[in-house]
């Protein structure tokens, strides 16, 4: 199952709406990096509103994708992490220290814009 990546000006928008298995997560990582390379996007919003579980593996893939995108010159913001997911991650001991977050897609875009222009 492939996750669609939408382009809007120089932003890429992704809404993850499936229960991520390991293979799809890695596929997504690859697809996103390729898309950044091809489109030259400078900002990425990954919306996790409909994701109801993130385990240590998915967290690692997401953390990696943020670092990798950064290397390629694209800032990533994760949005819409559910309270239950956030609590579970913290209890697992995963803090995602270097990852930018925002409440929703709108706030995420505002944050990206501030970062890229300010």
């Amino acid at each position: 199952m492939r996750i669609p990546i939408l382009k809007l000006h120089n932003y890429l928008l992704i809404s993850i709406q499936i229960d991520l298995d390991d293979q799809s997560a890695i596929q997504f990582q690859e697809d996103l990096l390729n898309k950044i390379y091809k489109s030259g996007a400078t900002g990425v919003v990954i919306d996790l509103t409909s994701v109801d579980i993130i385990d240590s593996f998915i967290a690692k893939v997401l953390g990696d994708v943020v670092t990798m995108s950064d290397l390629m010159g694209a800032k990533v913001v994760l949005t819409g992490i559910q309270p239950a997911v956030a609590m579970t991650l913290i209890e697992l001991g995963i803090h995602m220290q270097d990852v930018q977050t925002a409440l929703d897609l709108e706030q995420g875009l505002i944050k990206l814009r501030q970062e890229l222009e300010g």
Binding site: I81, V85, A86, I90, T101, G108
Partner: peptide, 12 residues
């Protein structure tokens, strides 16, 4: 601290 970190994760 845990609560504050969880708050950061959800984007506040």
């Amino acid at each position: 601290i845990q609560a504050a970190e969880a708050v950061r994760l959800i984007g506040a």
